[in-house]
């Protein structure tokens, strides 16, 4: 039953991310709700469920992107695995620790996608690259408590 709830929540979050209101976008950036959700699953569910859901979340995101490379499908799975390994070394019960993890992962994910975009021949001025990297990551971190609450409710 909970697995169906996770799948349903994934669809709702993906729909919200696809239709994120322009009035809530800061400097043309939007938060990565699917990333927050896939990482939060590691904290509240077993690793297998979190990993499969992360791959699904990455797949949802890649399906609507113009890029030919399914980079999010791979990167979400990697971040989930690394978060799982980190949570076995460091206590992640504290909400500030979880927020810090989301922030770091958001920055790393944006760096990976930004560099992949530059590598594929796209022209992005340095100022806009940094803006997309920093503001998008901060925005993602700022909304993470809300997504954590949703995941906690699903976990029961």
């Amino acid at each position: 039953m909970k697995k169906w709830l996770i799948f349903f929540a994934l669809i709702i979050i993906a729909t919200l991310q696809l239709n994120w209101p322009a009035s809530l976008s800061f400097f043309n950036t939007k938060p990565d709700l699917l990333l927050i959700f896939s990482i939060s699953l590691v904290f509240y569910f077993n690793f297998k469920t979190a990993l499969v859901s992360s791959v699904l979340a990455g797949l949802f995101k890649d399906a609507f992107l113009p890029s030919a490379i399914a980079i999010n499908t791979l990167s979400f799975a990697v971040w989930s695995y690394l978060t799982f390994r980190l949570s076995s070394q460091v206590s992640t019960e504290n909400s500030y620790v979880r927020l810090a993890i989301i922030l770091i992962i958001a920055v790393l994910n944006n760096i990976v996608i930004g560099i992949q975009s530059l590598n594929s021949g796209s022209f992005i001025p340095a100022g806009i690259f940094l803006r997309s990297l920093i503001i998008s990551s901060l925005y993602t971190g700022a909304l993470s408590p809300l997504v954590f609450k949703l995941t906690k409710k699903i976990a029961g």
Binding site: A14, L18, D32, L34, S67, I113
Partner: peptide, 10 residues
């Protein structure tokens, strides 16, 4: 629908 991330515009 719009692009789900900040690195592309579609």
């Amino acid at each position: 629908a719009r692009s789900p991330d900040s690195w592309s515009s579609s």
